[in-house]
């Protein structure tokens, strides 16, 4: 991918909702504002999501008898954050059905 192409491709996601998984397991959902060569990512209007502790999950599984029982994640509004590229483990794009096809994946 050459520079112009990469720039175009990345700029499609500006202002779109991304979910960034951090190395400690937290997930940050917010609007992409800025990124660079090292994959440092700035998100605006971000929420932080954290998985409940193992004990709570175990309990939920035990209570329902269903190994894929849903548990609720803790969330918290954190606003404008920058996630260092080294701590980004996974990047997901939330495509809303309204804006379908606007972004060439």
């Amino acid at each position: 991918m050459d520079n112009a192409k990469a720039t175009f491709w990345l700029s499609q996601f500006i202002g779109k909702n991304l979910r960034i998984h951090a190395s400690d397991g937290r997930v940050f959902g917010g609007q992409l504002k800025c990124t660079d060569k090292d994959c440092n990512i700035i998100l605006a209007l971000t929420y932080e999501y954290r998985a409940p502790p193992a004990a709570v999950i175990e309990e939920a599984v035990k209570a329902t008898g269903n190994p894929t029982a849903p548990v609720s994640w803790n969330s918290r509004y954190v606003g404008l954050v920058v996630i260092p590229g080294s701590d980004v483990t996974k990047i997901e794009f939330e495509e809303s059905s309204y804006a379908k096809g606007q972004v060439a994946l």
Binding site: M1, N3, A6, I14, C34, T35, D36, K37, I42
Partner: peptide, 15 residues
């Protein structure tokens, strides 16, 4: 990651 890697040093893709 690939796309970001193709960016020049100091180049920002931003709003």
């Amino acid at each position: 990651r690939t796309a970001a890697g193709a960016l020049a040093v100091g180049q920002l893709v931003k709003d």
